[in-house]
């Protein structure tokens, strides 16, 4: 190894290290580049996109009515048995009509794959933008989506 090349090597090494140090110093002095989010503090301002798949919910209107006909399309579409539809038959105007008793939703099994929502023919369920799902008791993750006493909206078949 010639002395010239030796010195060139050392100089090149020092320069390459210097470039890296310059970059870190830049970030050290430029605090506006910081990307940390102050999570539990910024709960109020936290905006999740409307398509975010947090959990399956069943929207009810002010008259406590939902759109679920109990057709079980979601149950069939679900790859891992997250949704169980329990149906009953109501007597309306002397006719037997199928309606849901309970729509049981196992959040602990759900993979948020969106297939149930795609499958639903009457837009009865949708994804909610919640994400803080941790609980101390696993049973709390098994949810019943329809409100107690709710019934099907008029005009939904």
């Amino acid at each position: 190894m010639s002395v010239g090349k030796y010195i060139k090597d050392v100089w090149g090494a020092v320069r390459s290290l210097g470039r890296g140090m310059k970059r870190t110093l830049y970030y050290f002095t430029h605090h506006k580049e910081i990307i940390t989010q102050q999570y539990p503090d910024n709960r109020e301002t936290l905006n999740l996109p409307e398509r975010f798949k947090g959990e399956v919910v069943m929207p009810h209107d002010e008259k406590n009515e939902h759109r679920c006909t109990g057709c079980q399309a979601c149950e069939l579409a679900c790859p891992n048995g997250t949704i169980k539809v329990v149906t009953r038959f109501d007597m309306i105007d002397g006719k037997k009509k199928k309606a849901i008793d309970k729509l049981v939703y196992h959040l602990e099994l759900c993979t948020m794959c969106n297939l149930c929502i795609e499958a639903c023919p009457s837009d009865a369920i949708k994804m909610a933008q919640t994400f803080e799902h941790s609980v101390f008791d696993r049973n709390k993750l098994t949810k019943i989506l329809n409100n107690p006493g709710s019934k099907i909206m008029d005009g939904v078949e």
Partner: peptide, 10 residues
């Protein structure tokens, strides 16, 4: 703190 600021963290 030094590491955090260099790593664009708080």
């Amino acid at each position: 703190k030094v590491s955090a600021w260099m790593q664009i963290r708080l």
